[in-house]
Simulated scan of single mutants.
Amino acid sequence: MKNELNVVGIQADLFWENPKKNLVFFENEIAKLSSETDLVVLPEMFTTGFTMSPKNIAESLDGASVKWMKTIAKKYDLAITGSLIIKHKNNYHNRLLFVHPSGEIETYDKRHSFTLAGENKVYTSGKEKLIVDFKGWKICPLICYDLRFPVWARNTEDYDLLIYMANWPVARVKAWDTLLKARAIENMSYVIGVNRTGSDANNYKYSGNSLIIDYLGNEISNLPKNQVGIISAFINREKQDNIREKLGFLNDRDSFSIDF
């Protein structure tokens, strides 16, 4: 069990539908990180950008990008997580992979498809929440549009870190900033939100605004708008546990079930 985790998010201007170029970029960035890095978070669809044309770029769980993630995790002795387009049988998925330093993989399929862009017509939504046990930390990783749905993120599992990876456009970035802090405050949990920058082939613009936030809603790492780079912080579970015990807000949370 590790009391402190060094978490890093990489904010990138993604190459459109070009996994090879994106993987080269991310490996170069990861190679620069401190050897103390425990966890690296990449944006949503980090190999392609948020495309609704998966046919020629979707991969299997034995594909090149997944093998790359396993290689990076083992080589640098860290966990790495990001979402990419996975094809399983006849379905496409916006699938998050959490790859442990051992190469073990855990997966989560995006629950809330972004209907405004037609994601629900292309990708099959998931129905199961993932809670990862990593170095004694309970981590809940979610994807982009999931951020707008607090019931799905509600901390009924007593997780310690909530992750959001995104392609969140600049037109609605105020909601991104506000909702990340709301999720941190209401769940009394560290939150890391990793977004992309630049423009995609559909001319949607992204400003990044990646953040690491503590359990009281305070920003502890951020990046200037439109900047490629990293956010990083040492997050401390003992401090979080002490505040949770002192304030007791999670003890008063509602009980509920979700119907699909």
Rank of each mutant, 00 (worst) to 15 (best):
T197D: 00
W68M: 15
D200K: 02
L179D: 11
W68I: 12
Y190C: 00
V194R: 00
I57Y: 05
N6M: 08
K75L: 12
K121Y: 03
C144T: 09
I220R: 08
R111C: 03
N18M: 01
R172S: 12
N202I: 04
K75E: 15
V41K: 07
I213N: 01
E104Q: 03
P141E: 07
I258R: 11
Q227F: 08
A153V: 03
V191D: 10
N90C: 04
I235K: 02
L42W: 05
I143K: 14
L211P: 02
S34C: 07
V132E: 08
I192L: 13
I230G: 08
A175N: 15
W176R: 03
I231R: 02
F234N: 14
D160T: 03
I192M: 13
P101L: 03
K246D: 11
N94C: 13
D214V: 03
I85N: 00
L250H: 03
D241N: 12
S199N: 09
F98L: 03
G103M: 06
P141T: 09
D146C: 04
E238Q: 14
K21C: 04
E219K: 14
Y190L: 02
A171E: 12
N18E: 09
I192D: 10
E238N: 15
K135H: 12
F50K: 14
K127N: 11
W176K: 00
R253N: 11
N226R: 07
I30Y: 08
F134N: 04
F25P: 02
L33N: 12
T115I: 13
E106A: 05
D259H: 13
R244H: 06
L142V: 04
H93S: 03
R111W: 14
N18P: 00
F25T: 04
K205H: 12
I72V: 15
K89F: 07
Y145I: 11
S102N: 12
I131M: 05
N18G: 00
K21Y: 05
K121G: 02
E219Q: 10
V194C: 11
G208C: 09
Y190E: 09
R196G: 09
R253Q: 15
M165A: 11
K138A: 06
Y76P: 08
S83W: 01
N22M: 10
P101V: 00
L39E: 12
F134E: 08
I212R: 06
L130D: 08
A171P: 00
S113V: 09
T51F: 13
K74C: 06
T107W: 04
V228I: 15
D214F: 04
Y123E: 03
D254Q: 13
D62E: 15
G82A: 09
V122H: 04
R196H: 10
F249W: 15
V191Q: 11
F149D: 08
D158M: 10
A201R: 04
G82N: 06
R183C: 09
S257E: 11
N91C: 07
T47K: 10
L130T: 05
E128M: 00
